[in-house]
Structures are given as C-alpha cells and as structure tokens.
Amino acid sequence: MSTASPGIVRLTDVVKDYPLGKVTVHALQRVNLTIEKGEFTVIAGPSGSGKTTLLNLIGCIDVATAGEVTVDGKSTGKLTDKQLTALRLNSIGFIFQSFNLINVLDIKQNVEFPLLLQGGMTKAQRAARVDDVVDKVGLRQFASQRPNELSGGQRQRVAIARALVTRPAIVLADEPTANLDSVTGTQIIDLMRDINHADKTTFIFSTHDDKVMKRADRIVRILDGMLEAAGLSEARASGVIENGGGVHA
C-alpha cells in the first residue's frame, strides 16, 4: 500500500461490530480505504451493506471496534468527545438523508449555525460567507424562510450550504438523494459535483441508486461490510477491480 499520500481520510483494518441481543452484527469487516483530497467519491451498496456505518466512522460520530480511522491527519480512536466534536465542527460537513435542518431557525440562520459554533468571525464576515454559499446553492430568494416552507430539494440545498459554510476538508452525505425524486436527486448530486470541481472540496456520499452512483468520479462498492472494489468509474467500466486500498490511477 502506498505510503506516499496519507489521504484526507484513511481507514486501516477497520472493524465495526454491533452487539444485537446475543449475536454480533459485523457491520464492517477489515475495511481499508484511502480517500484523497478533492475526490468525489460514492460509497455504493445495497441497503444494510454498511454504508451508513462507514460514513459515521469517517464523520467521527461513531468509533470503530478495531482498526484505525484517520481524518484530516488525526487518528480518531484516541480523541476525547470534545476533540471529536471540534474535529467535526472544523473539518467535516454533514448532509443527511432527511435534511435535518433546525426547524425554528430560518434558512440563513441554519447556514450560519456552524459558524456561530466555531466563533471567531465578525457578524459581517459571517454574513458574507453565508450569502456566498446560499448563492452557490441557488437559494438567495428563500434566505429568510423557515425549512418547512421549502421543498425537499430546496431543503437539501440548504443542508449543502450549511455543510460548506465552514469550508470543511470533507463533506459527508449519507444517501442525500434517498428522500428526493430522481430528477431532484440528480440535480443535488450535480450541484455537489459542480462545487467539488470548482472548490476542490472532498465529497464522500453514499447511495444504493445506480443512476446516482454513475455521476461520481470514484465508486467504492460495499457489500456485507466488505469493500468489493474501489476505483475510478472508468476503471470499473473497463472491468478493472481493485481491492479497497485506495490506490488509484
């Protein structure tokens, strides 16, 4: 395995077990994966294959049973809750399947929220940053509305703006299109890809939808907690199947 590039995300022999009554569910089994800065990666697999588990570990909202997860240069296994929280705040943006906006705040306030948690910016700086990302996702005219006044696709755009506003190293999106119709879903993925191309923001998202996964630069397939292949979509198309070591052309 290449050691030249540490990757923005690196999983080494990662295992995640869930105790379920008397049995243990092996959600992830010895997963090795490296994701480079600026990649637009999809974790693809059927329901129950372990996509959410994998993204939760990368997103530092869950801890591995064994193995090492390194995010933005930090090995997460030894971090305290406070340090993990800070890592999430400063290095990771989250986009959720069901949008998860704060309903009592309007769109602008939702987007501004992570900046307020970070602190250290003036009101004007925050406003400029918020306007910038709200523009980017095309929601300028909805800025002072509440989330429940918007359509699903619009809400997911708000979530994207909220994820981007801190300029995180990685944006994680767990099945961001699952609650959207296919046209809207495609638009959302295209918006994410446009931002990826423009800003070189690293995106990792999951899906079980073939149409959606085709729009990614790199597809990492997962089945029963094991990575089947990881590589560029071109590589997949040409029949080359690599092991999940993250080495790609």
Binding site: G59, L89, F94, N100, F113
Partner: peptide, 16 residues
C-alpha cells in the same frame, strides 16, 4: 432527539 444528534454531528459540544 434527532435535532440534538444533528447539532452534535455538526459540531455542537455537550456543554452547549
């Protein structure tokens, strides 16, 4: 609860 989970994921501390 889900909102709490969201805020924690986004980076809100336990204290907050």
């Amino acid at each position: 609860t889900r909102e709490i989970g969201t805020m924690r994921a986004i980076g809100m501390t336990q204290t907050r």
